[in-house]
Design a binder for these strands. Structure first.
Length: 581
DNA sequence: ATGGGTCCT
DNA sequence: AGGACCC
C-alpha cells in the first residue's frame, strides 16, 4: 500500500503544482551594467563587444535590427552610430550579479544562479507564510498571465501562483530601486516553465503561468532546441530521427528515443516536452572553479604563452583573494588552431598545488607564490604542447579548483571580520592590505583600480545611515508585503531590507587606499594577510538567509572615513566589534 | 564565436 | 580529461 502511494507521488513529480518558482532574467545584462556605469549611453545604441562578437546590446540598438551574437562588423553595418564597449573583462558584471543574488536571498535561501544574469528562486515557503497570515488578501496577478486561465486547477495552485506573482513584482521593484537593474520574471510551478514563461514578455515585464496555459506554452516553442537541456549535440541527434518540433518530441515512441539517447536523457526529454520538470532549485554556493580565459588569433611562441599566462594569473589572484578560499589544484586549458573543425576542441591538464603557497609570510608572499604557480602552469602547458614542433594556439585559460574551506579560530581577525563586517567591505579591506604588499601588484591591475575608483554603487540613494535598533520579530511574509504597501516609511528603517541594502553597496566611491599598511605592527600585518587569504564562506557566516539577525555594525569603510585607521586597528587588535556611536 | 560556469561519464 | 549542457 505504502509503496503504491510513494510511486504515485513519484510519477506525479514534475507535474504536480505544489511549488512556486520565480525565474528572474536581467534585461541585456552587460549592456545594462555599462549604462549604469555611464548613464550618457542610455539614449544611444550600445553594444557590448567581446573580441569580434557583439555579445549583447541595449534596446535602442535593437531598434536598428542589431541582435545578440552578431559579428561586430554586421552590427556596425546595420547601425553605423552603434557605440561599442569592450566586455571581455567580466569583473563589473560579476559584482552586479553577486548583488542581485544577495538581494534575492532576502526572499528565500533557495536561490540558484544560471550564468551571471539569471536566478531561480523557490518561494514556496514564503508563499505559504503569506497565505497563512494574509488569508483575506487580494488574489490579483501582478503582470501578464500566459495563455488560458478559464479552467482553474483545484489544488490551490491558483492562489499560490498569484502570491508568487506579487513576490516576483516586489523582487523586480527592489532590484530596480536598490541596484538600478531591470529584469523580466517568470512565475510557475517548476523551473522549466518559470524559465520558459519568463521570456514571453520582454523587456522589464513579468508573466505568470497557470496549469491551463502549459500546453500552449510548450507547443508554441519553435523547436526542440528551445528546451533548456537540449543543446547542440542532442538536437542534432533528434534531427537525425526526424524530430524538430516539440510536438514531435511529445509523440515519439519512448523506446526509440532511449535507443538514440539512453534511458536517462530520453525520459527527461519526454517529460520536458510536456512541461514536466522535477529539478529542485539548488542554492548556488561558492564556485567549484575560478578561472580566466583569453582567446586570440594566434600564439606560436613559448614566450608569448608565458606572458599571457602571467597576465591571466595576476588577474586571477585578485579573484582568488576575494573568494577567500585556498585552491588545491590549478588547471591550464588550450585550444589549438584547427581549420577543419567546426567544433571548438579544448585540451586541459591540471595538477595539485600546495596550500602553503597561500599562507604568506608578509613581504615574501607573492613573488614567490606567483613564480611557483607560473612554473606549474608552464609545466602543465608542456604536457599538452610539444614545443619542439610548431604549434598554433587560439586560446589559453588558467583556473583554480579543488577549494578547501578553512576554519578560523574564534579569536582571529577573520572571525571578527566575517561576523561583523559587510561582505563588500571585507573585499575592499582585502584590497587595501594587498596594496601594502609589493609583490601582489594589485594596484597595477586594471581590476584593482576599478574597485576603489569606479562606482558600481549606482542606485545608492541613501544618506548617512543611523545605527539600526534591533528589529521586532517579523516574518518574511510581513517583510515583503509591508515594504510593498508603504514604500520606505519610517518603520522600514528597521526592516531586514534596509540592513541588507547597506550590505549590498559595492563601494562608497571614496578612495580608501591611503591606509598605510606598513605602519601596522608586524603581528597585525601578518594576521591580516592570513585573514585575507582564508576567509570562510561569507554568506554562511553572515547569515544572509537569516533575516532575524540583522547586521548591526558599521561597515569598515565608514570606519575608515570617520576615523583615521588607528581606532579600528585597536578594535581589531582587542578583538572587539565596532562600538555603537 | 566569447568568457565564463555546471555536472556527468 | 573530455564532453555535454547553461548563460
Amino acid at each position: 500500500m505504502e509503496d503504491d502511494f510513494d510511486q504515485t507521488l513519484d510519477s506525479n513529480y514534475g507535474s504536480s503544482h505544489d511549488k512556486v518558482i520565480v525565474h528572474l532574467d536581467a534585461d541585456c545584462f552587460y549592456a545594462q551594467v555599462e549604462m549604469l556605469k555611464n548613464p550618457e549611453l542610455r539614449t544611444l545604441p550600445l553594444g557590448v563587444q567581446q573580441k569580434n562578437l557583439l555579445v549583447t546590446c541595449n534596446y535602442v540598438a535593437r531598434q536598428f535590427g542589431v541582435k545578440k551574437c552578431m559579428l561586430v562588423s554586421d552590427a556596425k553595418r546595420l547601425c553605423p552610430s552603434l557605440i561599442l564597449v569592450k566586455g571581455e573583462d567580466l569583473y563589473d558584471y560579476r559584482q552586479m550579479s553577486t548583488k542581485m543574488t544577495l538581494l534575492l536571498q532576502k526572499f528565500s535561501p533557495l536561490v540558484e544562479k544560471l550564468g551571471l544574469d539569471e536566478n531561480f528562486v523557490d518561494v514556496t515557503q514564503l508563499v505559504a507564510e503569506t497565505l497563512k497570515s494574509d488569508f483575506a488578501g487580494s488574489r490579483n496577478v501582478e503582470g501578464h498571465i500566459y495563455g488560458d486561465i478559464t479552467s482553474r486547477c483545484d489544488c490551490g495552485c491558483y492562489e499560490r501562483l498569484c502570491v508568487g506573482s506579487q513576490i516576483a513584482s516586489e523582487m523586480r521593484k527592489q532590484l530596480k530601486e536598490e541596484l538600478g537593474v531591470t529584469c523580466c520574471a517568470g512565475v510557475a510551478y517548476n523551473k522549466l516553465l518559470a524559465k520558459l514563461v519568463c521570456s514571453t514578455h520582454k523587456p522589464n515585464q513579468q508573466t505568470t503561468l497557470f496549469p491551463a496555459g502549459v500546453s500552449d506554452l510548450m507547443l508554441n516553442l519553435n523547436n526542440v532546441r528551445s528546451l533548456p537541456g537540449i543543446g547542440h549535440r542532442t538536437s542534432e541527434i533528434l534531427q537525425s530521427l526526424g524530430i524538430s518540433s516539440i510536438e514531435q518530441l511529445q509523440n515519439i515512441n519512448l523506446e526509440l528515443l532511449e535507443h538514440a539517447l539512453g534511458r536517462t536523457l530520453a525520459e527527461r526529454l519526454k517529460k520536458l516536452s510536456v512541461g514536466a520538470d522535477d529539478m529542485v532549485v539548488k542554492p548556488t554556493g561558492k564556485p567549484q572553479s575560478i578561472g580566466l580565459e583569453d582567446g586570440f588569433r594566434k600564439i606560436s611562441l613559448e614566450s608569448e604563452v608565458k606572458d599571457k599566462c602571467e597576465v591571466l594569473l595576476q588577474r586571477l589572484m585578485i579573484l582568488l583573494a576575494e573568494d577567500g578560499r585556498i585552491p588545491g589544484a590549478i588547471r591550464v586549458t588550450v585550444r589549438k588552431y584547427d581549420n577543419s573543425s567546426r567544433y571548438s576542441h579544448r585540451e586541459s591538464r591540471q595538477c595539485n598545488i600546495p596550500s602553503s603557497l597561500f599562507l604568506p609570510k608578509v613581504g615574501t608572499l607573492s613573488s614567490n607564490a606567483h613564480n611557483k604557480l607560473l612554473t606549474s602552469i608552464m609545466k602543465l602547458f608542456h604536457k599538452i604542447i610539444d614545443i619542439s614542433k610548431p604549434f598554433h594556439l587560439t586560446l589559453l585559460g588558467v583556473a583554480f579548483t579543488k577549494f578547501q574551506e578553512r576554519n578560523t579560530g574564534k579569536g582571529s581577525i577573520t572571525s571578527f571580520l566575517v561576523k561583523d563586517i559587510s561582505v563588500q567591505s571585507v573585499m575592499n579591506f582585502q584590497n587595501i592590505s594587498l596594496h601594502g604588499v609589493e609583490a601582489m601588484e594589485c594596484s597595477s591591475s586594471k581590476n584593482a583600480g576599478k574597485q576603489s575608483g569606479s562606482t558600481l554603487n549606482y542606485a545608492d540613494k541613501s544618506g548617512s545611515e543611523s545605527e539600526p535598533e534591533p528589529s521586532p520579530k517579523k516574518t518574511r511574509a510581513d517583510f515583503w508585503r509591508g515594504s510593498r504597501k508603504r514604500s520606505l516609511t519610517e518603520s522600514d528603517k528597521d526592516s531586514p531590507n534596509k540592513h541588507r541594502s547597506s550590505e549590498l553597496r559595492l563601494s562608497t566611491g571614496e578612495p580608501i587606499n591611503e591606509v598605510d599598511f606598513s605602519k601596522l605592527s608586524d603581528g597585525i600585518q601578518e594576521e591580516l594577510m592570513e585573514s585575507c587569504m582564508s576567509l570562510p564562506s561569507l554568506t554562511d557566516k553572515l547569515g544572509i538567509s537569516d533575516n532575524s539577525t540583522p547586521n548591526t555594525s558599521m561597515s569598515i569603510e565608514d570606519n575608515f572615513q570617520t576615523n583615521a585607521s588607528q581606532k579600528l586597528w585597536k578594535r581589531l587588535g582587542s578583538n572587539q566589534g565596532p562600538q555603537d556611536q
